[in-house]
């Protein structure tokens, strides 16, 4: 099946309507013709990116982004079970929420990355010191940080300054979206406006490293 023939619009409509059954049938049909990882990369990841872009344009709600990611994550777990198919584990990616209990952004990124076939280290809600220790101990290459409040966004600088130089840092959350210069101010390498931007950020990091 060529990329052009993939049922992107139908899959997107099923996800936005939170119709897990319909989305599952579509992915199953694609997996019957393609390798599961190819199906995930060709269907699931692009549709999640389209949904993220729809949120950015104000056409899709955060709740739909969340439910779409959740459904895709579950579906991908079924077609790419850990024991049978290798997930993408390079670069090694860690996710974390700094400072407060607003966990949704991290959860959205987790869903997008898992649904796109990535292995992900979820550090949960952490203080900067704890995160730095884990990143070094687990030999993480890319850290993705989600924040909701401005004070937490400003603490990203503490993390950036303490990490080994080769570790890339991407950030996301309302303070960065509403102040597009803030991510540079805190020393991050990239800023995602939507959860699905995590995929393009990883691609751009890979291109820079190549």
């Amino acid at each position: 099946m060529g990329i052009a023939a993939l049922p992107l619009a139908d899959f997107e409509a099923a996800l936005l309507g939170t119709d897990r059954v319909a989305a599952g049938r579509i992915l199953e049909a694609v997996c019957a013709l393609e390798q599961p990882l190819v199906a995930v990369e060709g269907l699931v990841a692009p549709v999640l990116e389209r949904i993220g872009a729809g949120w950015e344009r104000g056409e899709v709600a955060l709740a739909q982004v969340y439910m779409s990611g959740l459904i895709c994550e579950e579906l991908v777990e079924e077609v790419l079970p850990a024991s049978k198919h290798r997930r993408i584990n390079s670069p090694r990616v860690a996710l974390a929420v700094l400072d407060d209990y607003h966990m949704l952004g991290k959860r959205l990124v987790h869903s997008v990355l898992r649904a796109a076939g990535y292995e992900v280290l979820d550090c949960g809600r952490v203080e900067p010191e704890e995160l730095i220790e884990r990143v070094i101990a687990e030999q993480v290459d890319v850290v993705m940080l989600s924040v909701l409040m401005l004070p937490a966004a400003l603490r990203v600088r503490e993390v950036v300054l303490a990490l080994p130089q080769h570790v890339r840092v991407a950030v996301g959350g309302a303070p960065f979206r509403l102040d597009p210069e803030l991510y540079r101010e805190v020393g991050a390498d990239a800023m995602g406006r939507t959860a699905s931007d995590a995929l393009s950020i990883l691609r751009s990091f890979a291109e820079l490293a190549a």
Binding site: L16, G58, A61, L62, A63, Q64
Partner: peptide, 9 residues
């Protein structure tokens, strides 16, 4: 807000 919840919901 439609930023968070779909208008239909």
């Amino acid at each position: 807000s439609p930023t968070v919840t779909a208008p239909a919901v």
